[in-house]
Write a protein that binds this DNA or RNA. Structure first.
Length: 275
DNA sequence: AAATGAACCTGTTTGC
DNA sequence: TGCAAACAGGTTCATT
């Protein structure tokens, strides 16, 4: 399940290989993803050069020479990877771009929660998927002051707030759990009850957990091309996510799993008291 | 305005 | 052992 660090890893893996390459062929499955396919997508892509590879939240953005940008999202099960010339077609492939050095950029997504769209580059910031996004969690704009102000009159549990992309972009369930664990804050704590110290801790924990995951992902970039595995994904050691009943790494109390709004929360009842 | 839940999907895991 | 139900979770939209 690609979260922000995985998307960043994919971006870093793709960038040196596809930057400044021209799309010479495009094939689309026609199966609907999260949005309808842009009309005449393949025809609009052919002949375009890839000017950059960028990330915003969990979206990948590839501006093209023809003044349009491809917006990619991996959803829950999406996989964007490079294939060598005669590779077998991956299962659930929805878009295949052939580049002018005979490598193929393949997007596959069994569950089709992913998204591919094309948007005039000049209007990118107004695109429905990007317009309402809050600050990047790794940017300076996301600091304790900002967080505190945003949380001030919110009654929802802090974990719901971390998953709200308007407040801060690109934090998914895994890293929301991990950051709250690291900051020793209960996922159930009402947002407005976080004090200044807790906001500072939480911002630091979010930065730290995302940065560590990105650094860990960097080591997997080498086998990015042509592998059958999941390029850009990595075995990250989580402290609480998926660790139901395992001892808390800090105090050995068993980790508890429960549901918040249909999502699994994992936490240590002793280190992260609900109050 | 804010909070909540449904909907979209299918491969994998769990429970009877 | 087999099958069905539950589960996984990112995001937008609809409803309260």
């Amino acid at each position: 399940m690609p979260e922000l660090p995985e998307v960043e890893t994919v971006k870093r893996g793709l960038e040196p290989v596809i930057l400044n390459r021209t799309i010479v062929r495009a094939n689309c499955s026609g199966k609907r993803l999260r949005l309808p396919w842009p009309p005449h997508l393949c025809a609009r892509l052919i002949g375009q050069r890839i000017l950059a590879v960028e990330r915003r939240a969990k979206y990948l953005l590839t501006p093209l020479s023809g003044a349009e940008t491809i917006i990619w999202h991996l959803g829950m099960s999406g996989c964007l990877r490079l294939l060598e010339k005669d590779s077998a077609t991956p299962k659930h492939q929805h878009l295949l771009l052939t580049l002018d050095h005979d490598l193929h950029l393949s997007f596959a997504d069994p569950r089709r929660f992913g998204l591919i769209d094309l948007c005039p580059t000049a209007q990118l910031s107004q695109h429905r998927c990007l317009a309402a996004l809050g600050p990047e969690p790794l940017s300076e704009a996301f600091d304790a002051d900002y967080l505190r102000q945003q949380l001030a009159k919110r009654r929802s549990p802090i974990k719901s707030m971390l998953l709200n992309s308007r407040l801060v972009a690109g934090i998914g369930n895994i890293y929301a759990n991990e950051a709250l664990f690291d900051a020793e804050i209960s996922p159930f704590l009402p947002a407005s009850k976080l004090n200044r110290t807790q906001c500072e801790c939480l911002v630091a924990a979010i930065r730290s957990v995302l940065t560590r995951a990105i650094d860990a992902g960097g080591s997997t970039i080498n086998d990015f091309i042509g592998s059958d595995g999941q390029p850009g994904y990595f075995a990250h050691q989580f402290h609480c996510y998926g660790k139901t009943k395992s001892p808390c790494p800090r105090c050995q109390t068993p980790i508890i799993q429960s549901k918040q709004h249909g999502r699994s929360s994992f936490y240590c009842p002793r280190c992260q008291p609900a109050e």
